[in-house]
Design a protein around this nucleic acid. Structure first.
Lengths: 209, 209
DNA sequence: TAGATTGTTAATCGATTAACAATC
DNA sequence: TAGATTGTTAATCGATTAACAATC
């Protein structure tokens, strides 16, 4: 179905999914590439190109059926199936991810949270008890885990990533401000919050040029 | 000094800054585009092109002086000067940003946090007291605020952004899962965590293709 | 001076946009 | 059928890579 899909297209997919869900909620049942483009600030041409990476979901003279296209893109993204996450690090970020209800609402459920700090182990975060990171490997053996959320300091990130990879984890959501070296069969998404702030600083400084 | 700089280059700048800081910490005083490229998984050619957007910081036959280049990129990013942030929304994300000490360590200081929920107003987050969002405009008039951190639900984001813009705020770090419409002279960086998770889901699903 | 490496121009590659035949 | 809009090919644009003269 999908041949090679460029990173540029992949990064736009969640935007399509979000806008189509909004349209669905608004009761809009069909939309042309033109109409969707205006809404998303993309050209109609780009929208047709993007969607056709995955097959011809439209009908000539009509456009796209909103609920169908939303569903197909959901399947392409893999968000039609649930994902089980464990959080490494019960600091500010780890806690925020654990407590958020927008992730489980979108099918990403946190099933455990780990830390190495004895003062944190045993405390509760949302409905979860912080577990000792020494129990990590056993937990992974006994439970299905799709995604590891790295919410730990940079210094610990690479060693922990290696350990998780050895345990079979292939999805990493990395909040540590570092790059991870990992096997090609693993998927990594970095959330470098500090870099986002620096880009914001740059844009503010140079916005009149 | 800097003519037009593409978004692709801007997004790489924080990576340069981070790697140069690391090199400095390791005591490396000079580096060639080749050496930096290997470290950052970029081509030497791209590194020279990127750096030359901002002027000739290198020396032929020698390479780049690490501390000097780090400092210049810091200036280009604007992170040599402090930034003052206010957080809108004392939920999970707002609290995590307020409590993090990595942002102030990099010159991004949170000076206030606001919420509209009476149960949250008056409570303390880190060293700050959650203020009533009704007091927002007065606070901005009486204090220097560079950046607004939007850590509120999507429904409230646009109206609040409009209000902040009218009060003169021109830097927005948006955690709400929506696009903001705003004047061209404002700078916005979106942190769409849910979209990152969806990209991760996609990559995991399609990683063998 | 000789060697190394930049700054910069030219070539290539990939992504976006435009155009239009196919078709609902 | 006529009008609208897709799917797809061709043209354009921009970003990355290669090459090399300039020069430290």
């Amino acid at each position: 179905m999908a041949g090679y899909v460029s990173d540029a297209v992949i990064r736009r997919l969640p935007g399509y999914y979000r806008h189509l869900r909004e349209l669905e909620r608004e009761g809009v049942m069909q939309i042309s590439s033109q109409g969707l483009g205006e809404r998303m600030c993309l050209t109609a041409s780009q929208i047709r190109q993007d969607i056709n990476c995955f097959g011809g979901f439209g009908r000539q003279g009509f456009g796209y059926a909103v609920p169908e296209l939303r569903e197909r893109i959901g399947q392409i993204l893999g968000v039609d199936k649930p994902h089980r996450m464990i959080i490494l690090g019960a600091g500010n970020i780890g806690n925020a991810v654990a407590c958020s209800d927008s992730f489980p609402a979108n099918g990403f459920e946190t099933i455990a949270i780990f830390d190495s700090d004895p003062r944190k182990i045993g405390s509760t975060v949302d409905a979860l008890t912080v577990q000792d990171i020494a129990c990590l490997e056993r937990f992974i053996q006994e439970n299905t885990v799709d995604i590891a959320v790295l919410a730990i300091p940079s210094e610990a990130a690479q060693a922990l990533t290696d350990q998780l990879y050895r345990c079979g984890i292939r999805g990493f959501w990395n909040f540590a401000p570092c790059d991870l070296k990992i096997g090609q069969d693993a998927a990594v998404v970095n959330v470098h919050l500090d870099e986002g702030l620096q880009v914001l600083s740059f844009k503010m400084l140079h916005r009149h040029e």
